[in-house]
């Protein structure tokens, strides 16, 4: 996992609520058995028509670019497919900003070093308006300070993230390293309980 500290960039706006993981990466592209290459099919059916011609969609619009995907509320709902986080990252995004994320997607993103940034609906609305007026507007995500800055308007908003996850992201650590270090405690737990599960 690549460490994440701070990022200043333009953003790609997707002001739609409830974007589900079936849109982010449709099921028919889940047949790969590695983690790489999913970016090509990110938002496949919103980007291309049946004949693979580009549609009128923000990712096809050269006016918008940047390392932040700015999306409407409840981003990443639906399936647990981690392929959605892989696809967004593989496409080149490093952070997704929304007013809230679906739980499984948020966890998957964090586990891959793709930062989900939860800001207030007001700050998100302002950011969408800023991009609409100026697609070259820049935004800063500062993980160390836990702030999101709209560089155009100067608005600074805090965002929550739990301390443990923050440390993982800053250092590029995986949960699995931590869990493997807990082997003794896990063994003790198994030995010390009455188990009706198996």
């Amino acid at each position: 996992m690549h460490p994440f500290r701070t990022l200043t960039t333009t953003a790609v706006p997707l002001p739609i609520e409830d974007v589900d993981t079936d849109q982010i990466i449709p099921a028919r592209f889940l047949k790969a058995t590695t983690r790489e290459g999913f970016g090509e099919n990110l938002f496949r059916d919103w980007r291309y028509d049946k004949l693979n011609h580009p549609k009128d969609f923000v990712l096809n619009n050269p006016v918008y670019a940047g390392d932040i995907l700015m999306a409407g509320a409840n981003f990443g709902c639906g399936s647990s497919r981690e392929h959605a986080a892989w696809a967004i990252q593989d496409f080149g995004f490093r952070a997704v900003v929304s007013s809230y994320f679906a739980d499984i997607f948020r966890g998957n993103a964090l586990n891959n070093g793709l930062l989900p940034v939860t800001i207030t609906p007001e700050a998100l609305d302002e950011a969408f308006r800023t991009i609409e007026q100026n697609p070259a507007a820049r935004f800063t995500v500062n993980l160390l300070e836990q702030t999101f800055t709209n560089e155009d308007t100067g608005t600074v908003t805090g965002f929550p993230i739990d301390e443990y996850k923050k440390t993982c992201l800053i250092n590029g650590y995986d949960d699995i390293d931590f869990l493997l270090s807990q082997a003794q405690q896990i063994e003790a737990f198994e030995a010390g309980r009455v188990d009706h599960s198996i």
Binding site: E82, G107, N108, D175, I176, F178, L179
Partner: peptide, 15 residues
């Protein structure tokens, strides 16, 4: 997600 599938395979736990 798949990262957690791997965690459970490796440790029988999630965080």
């Amino acid at each position: 997600g798949t990262s957690q599938v791997e965690q459970v395979m490796a440790t029988q736990c999630v965080l």
